[in-house]
Every structure is written in C-alpha cells, then in structure tokens.
Design a binder for these strands. Structure first.
Length: 331
DNA sequence: GAAAGTCACCGTCAGGCCCT
DNA sequence: AGGGCCTGACGGTGACTTTC
C-alpha cells in the first residue's frame, strides 16, 4: 500500500469538488510525461490514425471519454501517440476518493500528510519542468500575465501589483518589488461608494488610467477601468481594486483609519505596521497566485488523466485487434 | 420562505524551501 | 543566518441549491 499523497488537500476548497490522488498517480503522471517526452522520437503509426481518438487542435485535445462522450481539454500534458507495441509500459491511473482516505484521519496522519505536502515542489516548478519537456504544456509565467504585460510600454510606466493604503492613510503601489507612494488627485462620491479617481486616462475608451506617484517619478496604469473604491464603512475602511467590467474585486486592502492612527510611538510603530501591511498584502497576492497555479495544475492533471485513460483504452483495443490477427494467421 | 447544505473564493498564519 | 517566496491549513463569507 503506497503512502497516500493528497494532491488537492485544502479540504475547505478542493476536496469537496475534486479528487485526491494516490502518490503514485502524480508521480506516474509526471513520470509518464517524462517517459513520453524522452520517447518522443517514437514514430506515429499513420496506419492506425483512424484508431487514435486523440486529436490535437492547437493546444486543445479532443478526448473521447469512456462513457462515449467527447470533450475538449486544454493544457494537456500529452504524450506523442505511439503504437501499443512500442509503448514499454502502460501507465495506470488510480484515483482514490476522499471517502476512501477518510478512515484513518488521525492527528498522526495529518502530520504525515503535512510533511508530505510540505515537501512538494511548487506548481510553477512542476509545470515549468513539464512544459520545458513538453511544448503542449502551458507555461506559467514567472511574472505577469499577458494582459498585464501588454499594458506597460513606457519606461516611466509600470504596472503595480496592487495599490493600497498604508496605516498613515497614504496610498502606495507595489511595483517591481518596492512600495511607491501615490498621490490621490481627486475623490468623488458615486452611488454611496467613495471612489478614488485617477488622473486623466490616455485611453479612456479602454478604461485604462494613470496613477501618478507622489514623487512624480512613477506612473501606473490601472487597467480595464479598475478603480479603487471604498468597500466598507466603519472604523477600518477597506478598499478594493475593482474592475467595472467584471464587478469582481481583485484585491481587498484593509487599512486603519488615518484618524485612528495617532500613535504615541508614531514613526516606529508606523513603520512596523506598514511593513506588516506590505507583508500581508504580498502574501495575499501570493496566495491568490498560488491558488491560480494550483487550479491550473489540477486541471492539467485531470486532463492528463482523461488523455491517459483514453490512451489506455486505445491501446487495449489495438492489442485486441493484433491478437485477433495473430490468431487468424495461426489457424 | 427559512434553514441547512454545498461550493467557490478569500485572507491569514505557519512552516518549509531557496537564494543571497 | 536571514529574508522572501510558496503553499497547506484554517476559518470566514457570499452565492446558490436542496430540504422541510
């Protein structure tokens, strides 16, 4: 019995909806990819092309599932299609349901599981390793997404990861790893929410706007009409970087009310608070990014499972056909 | 319609890993 | 060794569905 390894283990988030996998699964999945890549020179079997159920279209693969349904999957770590005979080993995929794992959920198990999980390499690493081996695997960018990268073009313009208010009430942006103070040219009230408007947008039709740093040394784009809005009332205001198009808050920043920050130890305490806020903010965004990568990784694995299951089915059929031919000749 | 359940997402903390 | 990053775990919340 192999040790169990939950690929998706955040019970509050993923276990409810996803599968957990035996450790052999992820390793098999990954090793099978590597196998397939190292075996990449193995030739296609054009004669059998009609039997190959996988059809790649750009980066998406059409997979016929065991129940007869076909589905299009993207980001599949896809092995080159080879003949059954040339495939040295059939990778088996074992999916263990949560219920099956649930039995021995003692503290010790949790501890063990934690240890296992803590040693797991990052999703970025895993996927990038895979993608370096297999071009069909989408690579996780080290920095920004394509939409963000497309915005910044000028040397004086950079894209802030986020904009937030410090404990002293000042707005700063975090860009290129450092905090830069921002001016807040105007404040207007709109439908009960306080909106921080920004200086004239160079491209108002696209909703982009420019934030000018307090020291005038930096400008930032707010993309897609994102606005910083006050999202909560009370002693501690919260601000959200919100895109009017999606309506979804992209970051929520808590900040102490400036009026409540009349601390006697002022500077030092303020510095500590500011550092903490920056740390929390960075961690918040790191968590967001981590979840995004995790989802991508899980999706990738699920797609891979579908592909491998299908491949397995094809191989079995091919083997069966060959057996028939062989038996026929033998008679 | 209210209560309960489910799901997805979020922020925070803790701890391991990696780089300098 | 220390700092930063990454990610599992945890608890909270809102939207939606199911049950009564």
């Amino acid at each position: 019995m192999p040790s169990t390894h939950t690929v998706i283990s955040d019970e509050s988030d993923y276990v409810k909806t996803s599968v957990t996998m035996d450790s052999s699964v992820s390793s098999q999945l990954e090793s099978s990819l590597n196998d397939s890549v190292t075996d990449g020179e193995t030739n296609q079997s054009p004669a059998d092309s009609s039997q190959v159920l996988l059809q790649t279209e750009a980066e998406a693969a059409v997979v016929q599932l065991s129940d007869g349904q076909t589905t299009s999957v993207a980001g599949v770590i896809q092995a080159p299609q080879t003949s059954v005979i040339q495939s040295p080993q059939v990778q088996t995929v074992q999916i263990v349901t949560v219920a099956e794992l649930g039995d021995g959920g003692s503290v010790g198990d949790t501890q063990k599981r934690r240890e296992l999980l803590s040693r797991r390499p990052s999703y970025r690493k895993i996927l990038n390793e895979l993608s370096s081996d297999s071009p069909s695997v989408p690579k996780i960018d080290e920095e920004k997404g394509e939409d963000e990268a497309a915005v910044s073009s000028s040397s004086t313009e950079s894209v802030p990861n986020s904009i937030y208010q410090t404990s002293s009430g000042q707005y700063i942006a975090i860009a290129q790893g450092r905090a830069i103070p921002l001016t807040t040219p105007a404040v207007e009230t709109l439908q009960g929410t306080q909106t921080l408007t920004v200086t004239g947008s160079p491209t108002p039709q696209t909703g982009a706007a420019v934030l000018q740093a307090a020291d005038s040394s930096h400008q930032f784009f707010l993309q897609g009409g994102q606005v910083l809005i006050q999202a909560a009332t009370g002693d501690i205001p919260a601000y959200q970087l919100r895109s009017p198009n999606s309506g979804l808050a992209q970051s929520i920043v808590m900040a102490a009310s400036p009026s409540s920050m009349q601390s006697p130890s002022s500077q030092h305490a303020e510095e500590i608070t500011r550092k903490r806020e920056v740390r929390l903010m960075k961690n918040r965004e790191a968590a967001r990014e981590c979840r995004r990568k995790k989802k991508e990784y899980v999706k990738c694995l699920e797609n891979r499972v579908a592909v491998l299951e299908n491949q397995n089915k094809t191989l079995i059929e091919e083997l069966k056909a060959l057996k028939d031919i062989y038996c026929h000749k033998a008679e």
